[in-house]
């Protein structure tokens, strides 16, 4: 039973991986954009760190690392949307989602598998190049200890789970709203700011920083990069970061299940 289910969702993930690999032009354009954007942000950050060295506890080299790892995570974690959940939004709007309900599959696990397959492809295709190019052009503070990299990948994976959970909830809002562009925009802005995509969260003043660090979005970019830079002391070290991410992932995935059940019930009782 469980073995069968595992095989099914592995097939879904593998299929989605291959599907994304067919979008070659989009992938190349994405790599180009993230790399160029990395350079633009790198020079902006350099200007800032020249005036305020050790801002937020980062050296200039840390700040540049933050920029390029951030660009590498951009497509993989998909903070702004653009993940497989966008397809889900399309299927809800067109009503195709009702065909999905005819099948003996779990809606949330199905889309999670889809998103993981997508992220796996984008990790290889769009995750690695920006950091490699950034490391060639600048001196980045990349660790030499493979265990730190491993911890970073684990933290990034948890960030992906949290990001998926949030995007999945946004997609589910389509069952009630039909047009999700409002929720998508709101989620995008929140994500951009509170993930640390715009500026690292640790340069924010006092309470704002403290709160932002504890919100789910921090786990999508800020926390994994802090794990890589080994600047997690204020969060109780690596264990504290991972515990926070696991908690958010569990809470938001559970919430997603709850809302799924309500959405399906709504469709089942009231029609699409």
């Amino acid at each position: 039973m469980r073995l069968h289910a595992a095989r099914l969702y592995r097939t879904v993930a593998a299929g989605t991986f291959r599907r994304y690999s067919t979008y070659r032009a989009a992938t190349i354009a994405g790599v180009f954009t993230n790399t160029v954007f990395g350079f633009i942000m790198a020079y902006t950050y350099l200007a800032l760190w020249n005036v305020r060295p050790h801002l937020g506890g980062y050296t200039a080299s840390d700040a540049l690392t933050y920029v390029f790892i951030g660009q590498s995570l951009f497509a993989v974690v998909a903070v702004f949307g653009g993940g497989a959940t966008d397809d889900m939004i399309g299927r809800i709007r067109s009503g195709d989602i009702s065909v999905d309900l005819y099948r003996p599959v779990d809606l949330q696990t199905w889309w999670l598998a889809t998103d993981l397959g997508r992220a796996a492809f984008q990790f290889l295709a769009r995750g690695i190049p920006p950091t490699v190019v950034g490391a060639l052009a600048f001196h980045l503070s990349l660790p030499s200890d493979p265990l730190v990299w491993l911890a970073f990948l684990l933290s990034a994976f948890l960030g992906l789970l949290v990001s998926f959970s949030v995007r999945y909830l946004v997609a589910l809002s389509g069952f009630w709203l039909i047009d999700t562009s409002g929720t998508q925009a709101a989620a995008g802005i929140l994500g951009m700011f509170f993930s640390g995509q715009l500026l690292p969260l640790n340069i924010f003043p006092g309470a704002l920083k403290q709160i932002a660090m504890l919100l789910p979005w921090a786990g999508m970019q800020q926390l994994p990069i802090d794990v890589l830079l080994r600047t997690t002391a204020s969060l109780g070290g690596l264990g504290g970061v991972l515990a926070l991410q696991v908690t958010w992932a569990a809470v938001l995935l559970a919430l997603g299940r709850l809302v799924t059940a309500t959405a399906v019930r709504k469709v089942v009782f009231q029609g699409g």
């Binding site: 099914l8 097939t11 879904v12 299929g15 599907r19 009702s98 065909v99 099948r103 003996p104």
Partner: peptide, 29 residues
Amino acid sequence: IGVVFGQRTTLWWDLPLRDSFTLVRRIYR
């Protein structure tokens, strides 16, 4: 049961037809 809605599709849009059938094999074991 099997369901076909002429106006909707359950096939994987960007992948070879064969892959959708493999997926169906997994779904229904």
